[in-house]
Design a protein around this nucleic acid. Structure first.
Length: 322
DNA sequence: AACTCGGGCAACCGCACCGTA
DNA sequence: TTACGGTGCGGTTGCCCGAGT
C-alpha cells in the first residue's frame, strides 16, 4: 500500500512559478516564517501549489543570499574534491558553499563541471563503456542495476581523482609540478600517483595476475585503499577479457569485503585512511548534524573553516588546482 | 526565415529518514 | 512497537533558449 499523496495533484498548479506566486510566497515567509509546516503553507497563503513545491521554490530561488551561476574556481575545487570524497551527496556539498543550493550544484556538475573535468578522460571511459553490449549480460550474471550504478559512480570518482592527480599544476606554479602537493595531499595519495605511473607501463599484465596483485595489496599494509585503487586502475586501463562493468564490480566487491579490514584498524590508521580518500564518518556526522541544505550558515564551510576535522579534510582532500 | 538540436536550468517525482502520537 | 505525516534528498524530466544549418 503506497502512502497518501501530500496534496491533491489535480488541484495544485505545476510548472514554472509566476512572479506573483513568488511574491506571495516570499512576503508570507518574510512575515511569518515557514511555520514548520510546508504542507499547510500554500493553503495559508492561498497558493494553488504543493507544499513541497513551495519549499523547493523557497530554498532554491527565493531565500536570501542565494547565488546563481558564476561558480568560481575555488568553488569548482570544493565541488570536485567533495564529489570525489563523498559522491553525489549534493546537500552536503552545498553546505560547504554558502549561498549555493544542492540543486544548483547538481545542475552545474552534471552540465558543465563533469564535462570540463572528465572530457579529456573519454578514451579511458570508453574502455569501460565500450562494453555496453555486455551490460545486459552483466545484469543477467547477477550483477544488479544498483551495483552497476554504484560502480559507475565509484569509477567516475576514481577516474576523476586520477585525472586530476595527473593534471599539470597551474601555470603560476613556479616551484615545480608538485609544489603544492605535500601540503594538500595525503602521503598515500602521493604513493598512489607513483604506483599508477608504474602500473600504466605494465599493459600486458594478465587479468588474473592483476587480481592476485590486488589481493596482495589488500593484505599487505595499511594502505589498502591506495592499493585497491592501483588495482582498479590496472584493471580498467589495460585490455582484458572481462568487461569494464565486471571489473568495476570486482573492485566494489573488494571494497565491500575489505571494509572490515579498514574498520578493524586502530583509530589513527583509520583516520589516515579516511582522511585520504573516504569521507570520515566522524566528520560526516558533524557535518550532517550541523548543516542542512536549508542552512546557509557558512561557519562550517570548507572554504571558511579552520581547524578540526574539516581542516584534516581540507589538507588531504582539496588538492586540486582546476 | 525556418527548422533542428543540444545545453542549461527549474521543477517534479519518488524514496528514505525522522519525529511523533 | 507501529503507523503516519512532514521533510530532505537525489535522480529525472521537460521547457526554454541560443547556436548551427
Amino acid at each position: 500500500m503506497g502512502r497518501a499523496p501530500c496534496c491533491d495533484k489535480t488541484l495544485v498548479k505545476k510548472g514554472p512559478w509566476a512572479p506573483e506566486e513568488d511574491a506571495m510566497l516570499k512576503a508570507y515567509i518574510d512575515a511569518h516564517g515557514t511555520g514548520g509546516n510546508w504542507i499547510a503553507l500554500p493553503q495559508k497563503i492561498g497558493l494553488r501549489r504543493c507544499g513541497k513545491s513551495c519549499r523547493l521554490r523557497w530554498l532554491n530561488y527565493l531565500r536570501p543570499n542565494i547565488k546563481h551561476g558564476g561558480f568560481s574556481d575555488e568553488e569548482d575545487n570544493v565541488i570536485c574534491s567533495l564529489y570525489i570524497s563523498i559522491g553525489s551527496r549534493w546537500s552536503v556539498i552545498a553546505a560547504q558553499l554558502p549561498g549555493r543550493t544542492d540543486n544548483d550544484i547538481k545542475n552545474y556538475w552534471n552540465t558543465k563541471l563533469k564535462k570540463k573535468l572528465l572530457g579529456r578522460r573519454k578514451q579511458c571511459n570508453n574502455i569501460v563503456s565500450s562494453s555496453s553490449s555486455s551490460t545486459m549480460e552483466d545484469t543477467k550474471d547477477g550483477m544488479s542495476d544498483e551495483t552497476q550504478r554504484l560502480s559507475n559512480s565509484a569509477l567516475e570518482r576514481l577516474q576523476l581523482h586520477i585525472q586530476l592527480q595527473n593534471r599539470p599544476r597551474t601555470l603560476n606554479s613556479v616551484n615545480g609540478p608538485t609544489a603544492h602537493w605535500p601540503k594538500l595531499l595525503h602521503p598515500a595519495q602521493e604513493r598512489m600517483i607513483r604506483s599508477l605511473t608504474e602500473s600504466q607501463n605494465d599493459i600486458n599484465t594478465p587479468h588474473q595476475h592483476k587480481l592476485d596483485k590486488l589481493d596482495e595489496c589488500i593484505g599487505s599494509s595499511g594502505s589498502q585503499i591506495e592499493s585497491m585503487r592501483q588495482g582498479l586502475e590496472q584493471l580498467t586501463s589495460t585490455p582484458s577479457s572481462l568487461s569494464g562493468l565486471q571489473l568495476q564490480a570486482e573492485f566494489e566487491n573488494y571494497m565491500k569485503s575489505n571494509s572490515e579490514i579498514i574498520a578493524g584498524k586502530g583509530d589513527e590508521e583509520r583516520k589516515e585512511l579516511d582522511g585520504s580518500f573516504w569521507w570520515s564518518g566522524e566528520m560526516e556526522n558533524k557535518s550532517s548534524a550541523s548543516i542542512s541544505s536549508n542552512s546557509w550558515d557558512d561557519s562550517y564551510s570548507v572554504i571558511n573553516s579552520a581547524g578540526g576535522n574539516l581542516m584534516m579534510f581540507h589538507d588531504y582532500g582539496l588538492g586540486y588546482n582546476m
